[in-house]
Amino acid sequence: MILLISSIIAITLKAGTSLVFATIGEIFTEKSGILNLGIEGIMLMSAVIAFTVSYYTGNLSAAILSAMLTGGVLSLIHAFLSITMQAQQVVSGLSITLFGTGMASFLGQTLGPETNSGYLTGLSAARLQTLTIPGLSRLPLIGPVFNQDPLTYIVLLLIPVSWFFMYKTKHGLNLRAVGENPQTADAMGINVPRIRYLYTIVGGMLAGIGGAHLSLSYTPGWTDNITGGRGWIVIALVIFSLWNPSRAIWGALLFGGINAVQFRLQASGADISSTLLNMLPYLVTIAVLVIITVWEDRKRTTGSPAALGTPYQREEK
């Protein structure tokens, strides 16, 4: 039993890493008042770029950095459209996703070497290795927590750090002010567009790391549509965690964990409908969303930024 639980913990953390990176990124973006629905496209593009760089250079740091750069550039496009051009954020985000999905698929069939007819699929490259923390990794039950790849450790640190940044520092206060009430923030001397640009790009870069984790560690290699819709789950996870980085981990673990649990239940021969089990994470998400909406109607303390999705124009003051 202990072995089973610890194997579930191990796979859950691994599965959740990319989700938490992207969720925290999206929380930063949404806290500034920008809704970025381009996460799916950004993660796919970053995954394909990270794998390509890793394949040709063998340098994992370069691979992760290029994934961050990819995420940064794509979210810059979104920032430009939605902040400077004041475009519909939903439309702009969706177009980033549509572009990213198609482009990543295209690159996956062209960036590969001649010997593999240009395909990236089926190649193997340098991947993130597991970093075992001596001593701690031998602990019963929670041992697997200390037997992960570097990005998983980083994301475990990122959770408290980003919570502290957002709720305990002046920069975090400015960020939240811009998302809550840009007019007031502007009156206080905060440069609203600059903050929004900054955190949209930061969010994209974090989603980029999430994409890189998929192609460099979790499912090493490139396969078309490697995210399998995880970029959309991220959008739901942000709401699930009520825009608070410290809660992001639970949603991500739920999604990572439920697959691990349901596949293990099936493998143990339990007579449970697999279709139902596969539905479970989505059912839970819908339930949480409904509860949040109801709760919000009564108390209005869900953490959702009031100005989310609304472009800011100075003249409106």
Partner: peptide, 11 residues
């Protein structure tokens, strides 16, 4: 779904 199929194999 590369991720799910891997998870199932690992289980």
């Amino acid at each position: 779904d590369p991720v799910k199929e891997r998870e199932a194999a690992v289980a």
